[in-house]
Structures are given as structure tokens and as C-alpha cells.
């Protein structure tokens, strides 16, 4: 579902080329939950951005076998002046849902978030917990074949994190493909069927985890 061949990304840092990522080969199949671990600055974010199509590779090829849902931050596309309901439609569209999909899932999204009674007030008046729940509910109802998730799960209380983990497993069971990036090895081990490690812009396979 994801195929990367000799992918490299070079940035210019103060006029000098810097390879944030180089010679990365990666294959992820449908139904797989791949965890990517690595220290800060190891190239995780660059990998995420490449897969999310936010930035383009300098060399190599990336093939994506389906729509990509990029969950790189909580509340992508949210605008604080708009109401909860308006933001569900806006954020849903920006994350890649069609009009029909947002409409069909609207009630579920609202129910999952549990903030029914605050739908008509601007999200700037929300508590951070309410904001998080609404934002994640939208993300959880994305139907894209590939989900790319940054450590947004690190926020929120443990009960909510459990809910998120459950949702991610469900996504993988549906035969879609999840790529989860974190520097927290414990979380990755709990969630993923396979782990790769990033180090100074290169990628190495770790042993598969037996669950």
C-alpha cells in the first residue's frame, strides 16, 4: 500500500545541503500497523511529511496505493472563530472527506466526541479537552486507506487514549494501513505489528513483534 524506493529529502540549511532523509526503502501492506521510532532529528517528521504529500522528495519514488489521511496535528483545518459544527465540515473536507462522507458520519462524529450541546459555539470557547475530543472524532471517521499518525495520541487523558488505540486497531483490522510515529517505544510496541527505527535519516527494520 505504501512503497518507498531510495527516497531522499534534502534541505538547504544556511546555504548548505542537508539530507534529512536518504536512501529510504520502505514497504507497508494493507492491514499492517507500522510503528516508526527514532530520536528527535532522526528524520521521522520528514518521513511523515513526505508520506502526507506535504513536501516532495528530492530523489527516489513514493507510491501510495490509496487516499492518505494525514493526522499530523490535532485539529487540522480548525478555525477558532467557527463553531464546532462548522469545523466538523471544514476539517473533514480538508482532511480528505467528501461532502457525502462528512454528512453521513456527522452524527457519529458528534456522538463519539460527546460534545453535542456545544456544537453551535465557536471552538475558541472550548476547553482544550473538548477541542481535542471533537478534533479526534473527525480524524477517527476518516475513511482513507492509509492513515499517517504523528504522536497526537500523547495528548489527552488515559481513558481517551484507550479509545484512540481501540480505534486505530479497528482501522487496521478493516484492512487499511496505519503508520504511527512516536519516540515512545512502549506505545508503539502496544499498537503496532511491525516496527522500524530511524537514525540520522536512514531507516532500519526491527524484529517483528509477536503479540
Amino acid at each position: 500500500m505504501i512503497e518507498m524506493k531510495k527516497v531522499g529529502k534534502c534541505y538547504l540549511v544556511e546555504g548548505k545541503p542537508f539530507w534529512a532523509l536518504r536512501n529510504v526503502d520502505l514497504e507497508v501492506d494493507a492491514g499492517e500497523t507500522l510503528g516508526v521510532i527514532g530520536l528527535n532529528g532522526s528524520g521521522k517528521s520528514t518521513l511523515l511529511k513526505l508520506l502526507a504529500r506535504v513536501t516532495q522528495p528530492t530523489e527516489g519514488e513514493i507510491e501510495l496505493g490509496g487516499r492518505v489521511g494525514a493526522l499530523l496535528e490535532v485539529g487540522t483545518g480548525f478555525h477558532h472563530e467557527l463553531t464546532g459544527q462548522e469545523n466538523v465540515f471544514l476539517s473533514g473536507a480538508i482532511l480528505g472527506m467528501s461532502k457525502r462522507e462528512v454528512k453521513r458520519h456527522f452524527d457519529e462524529i458528534v456522538a463519539f466526541s460527546g460534545i453535542e450541546s456545544f456544537l453551535d459555539i465557536p471552538v475558541k470557547r472550548y476547553s482544550s479537552g473538548m477541542f481535542l475530543r471533537l478534533a479526534f472524532s473527525i480524524m477517527a471517521h476518516l475513511r482513507s486507506e492509509i492513515l499517517i499518525i504523528d504522536e497526537i495520541l500523547a495528548v489527552g487523558d488515559s481513558a481517551f487514549q484507550e479509545k484512540c488505540f481501540a480505534k486505530m486497531r479497528q482501522v487496521a483490522d478493516e484492512g487499511r494501513c496505519v503508520l504511527f510515529v512516536s519516540h515512545d517505544e512502549n506505545k508503539v510496541e502496544r499498537l503496532c505489528s511491525r516496527i522500524v527505527q530511524m537514525h540520522e535519516g536512514t531507516l532500519c527494520e526491527c524484529k517483528p513483534i509477536l503479540q
Binding site: 502526507a52 504529500r53 506535504v54 494525514a70 499530523l72 487540522t76 480538508i94 482532511l95
Partner: peptide
Amino acid sequence: ARLITKVYF
């Protein structure tokens, strides 16, 4: 800028 660096469209 936040949209540009976080999601593609």
C-alpha cells in the same frame, strides 16, 4: 502556513 505543513490538498 499550518495547513501547508500538515496536510495536502
